[in-house]
Design a protein around this nucleic acid. Structure first.
Lengths: 356, 356
DNA sequence: CTGAAAGCGCTTACAG
DNA sequence: CTGAAAGCGCTTACAG
């Protein structure tokens, strides 16, 4: 590939001049000279070496996004938001899937650091034990010191996220909406409570119950993973228990969708016998049958704002932390409760099926 | 951030020696010296500058994956496969979402080129008019010449993809499976036929019909987008038409899922009144109610193999093109056809609802 | 086994 | 308006 030296030679100017033209520097160059350089660059199919430029500036226009799992639609949509904003500013996005492994997360950040990435954005929340990893804060500290931006889009161990969503308030609103429909026995699929974000949502559930004057019953809470399978298993757990319930509120949409499917295969009518609600409003939430009632998080905007925050840091502007609103979206998976609630033990799968 | 110069100074050795130790070069260094350098590196929290190294090697351990849309689960799973393989080899993955825009795709490739990325992997298929863009082949040519790898995972204008899946055969197998169940009137949701991959799948549909001795009827083919919404609209189109059908075969899962939902909301029983089949077997295909019959593509493996192919090119090994198998997966959305097929015009929505 | 020096491709004071 | 030169942080022949 042609270098600036070759462009300069072909144009008959110094590399300094050639550089000033091709890098669109704000520096006077005569029109005739400029033309000759541009012609030479075109003729040689010149594309500047981003590494050389980055070495000089000790920064490269790349932003890394750390996600838990890229196939989780939550993260896919956040990444999409980051990409939308980043592309518009000429930045490239590196997506790093940590698989919720602290070791892996840390080694990604190290790689990003070694590459002098301009920013690293953590899309997912942290695990509850930050002591797990001593390397990560070291890398982040070094990056910050070098002027790179570090942004968190979800709760973590080091204080408030720069761009946040009120998880607790969101869940509490959904609980309120279910209570409004007439539900009193609301089960909660909590997700992995080792994750900060899951804990906030669990807190929101308690808060919602409290605000409605309803008692908290540990038997109605099922700790799960954050995926579809976890939701299906939680339904089994709830049905095997003795505590009746008329609604299931899940800590994310994937759990709710899993619950929906298991309920359907058991012949339990949704929302006739049980109402189901999710959280996040990922794209597929509106694609299920029945479509899923959920709490909408502005995921795309979350990503977009995260990048804009990073841009502020990079430009030495004073960035302001942002708090994004949530919104309850009622679709077809929720309705008033039935006269007789789905029960547990004495009314196991068979009975339930009859109920439907 | 500390540079190799500082590490060398602290260790009391030359930068050459320091470099040999920290870069794990295969070069003799006395154990004592090595120890001192390592200690110094640790003390200074030294992380090598990937840009400087990349400038020297004129290559950086980054592989770019060009997708049509990162929130499409098809691409998310392919990217995941690339990441799995790349991470294991110390490469970072840059995901670039072209939004099916040739301009945007080209500018991403230019960026990757400017960054001296080691490889670019095209996950999606090309648009049918390659002349649309003259820049892209130029960039790819330059990258290839510089020793970078270029890999295609889907059909495009420039010959056979390096890693491929038999789209036509896959669809034909699904048609065969539906015929086997007793269907004779099989509609096809074709996707955007400006995409090579969609055309291959349409060809597979024709081929499947031919092999079963069934006539091709243009009225049963609906050209659509490649998303959920397109599937829902296609159902409307088919029901508004006069041609009866007992099964819908879709060119991808998202279309089939959209069809499923629209059918459910119209009260049409699936699979009782209409069978529905998808293509790809993305994760959510098994999550719908009823779960979706589909053709499984090894998406993760597709990505993984794509990266391995790139690695072969980079290591100057002779890479071999790979052809991945497809597999029909019958779940709950397909069954033998009803005695009386769902019809079109004279049996519009109302009639259909009664049928269910 | 160790080190001095050149050079990867660029940008930017500095001098004219 | 133009150019010569230094330097970003590394690796690697080359010499010892």
């Amino acid at each position: 590939m042609a270098s600036i030296t070759e462009v300069a030679r072909l144009a008959g100017v110094s590399v300094a001049t050639a550089s000033r033209v091709v890098s669109e520097a704000d520096y006077p160059v005569s029109a005739a000279t400029r033309e000759r350089v541009l012609d030479a660059a075109r003729a040689l199919d010149y594309v500047p070496n981003a590494l050389a430029r980055g070495l000089l500036k000790s920064r490269i226009p790349v932003v890394g996004v750390i996600v838990h799992d890229i196939t989780d639609p939550y993260f896919a949509e956040v990444v999409r938001g980051v990409e939308d904003a980043a592309t518009a500013s000429g930045y490239l996005v590196i997506t790093c899937s940590s698989e919720r492994d602290a070791e892996r997360e840390s080694s990604y950040v190290r790689l990003l650091r070694s590459m002098r990435a301009a920013a690293v954005i953590f899309a997912g929340s942290g695990l509850d034990d930050p002591a797990l990893n001593e390397e990560l804060p070291k890398h982040l500290g070094a990056m910050r010191e070098a002027g790179a931006a570090v942004v968190h889009l979800s709760p973590h161990a080091f204080g408030e996220p720069e761009i946040s969503v009120d998880n607790a308030r969101g869940i509490a609103s959904m609980v309120a909406a279910l209570v409004e429909l007439g539900h009193r026995d609301i089960a909660f699929l909590a997700g992995p409570t080792s994750l900060y974000v899951a804990r906030e949502r669990l807190a929101g559930y308690r808060q919602g119950l409290e605000e409605a004057g309803l008692p908290f019953d540990e038997r109605l809470v099922v700790r799960t993973t954050f995926d579809h399978e976890g939701g299906a298993q939680a339904v089994d757990t709830l049905l095997a228990g003795e505590r009746p319930f008329t609604a299931i509120c899940a800590a994310n949409d994937l759990l709710a969708l899993g619950a929906l499917q298991r309920l359907a295969s058991l012949g339990v009518d949704v929302p006739g016998a049980v109402s189901v609600a999710g959280f996040d409003d990922v794209r597929i939430a509106s694609m299920s049958a029945p479509s899923l009632s959920t709490v909408r998080l502005p995921l795309n905007e979350l990503g977009r704002r995260g990048f804009e925050y990073a841009l502020d840091v990079l430009a030495d502007r004073e960035p302001s932390t942002v708090h994004l609103p949530t919104e309850v979206v009622l679709r077809d998976s929720t309705s008033p409760p039935p006269a007789v609630p789905v029960t547990g033990r004495q009314g196991t799968e068979r009975t339930v099926a009859t109920t439907a």
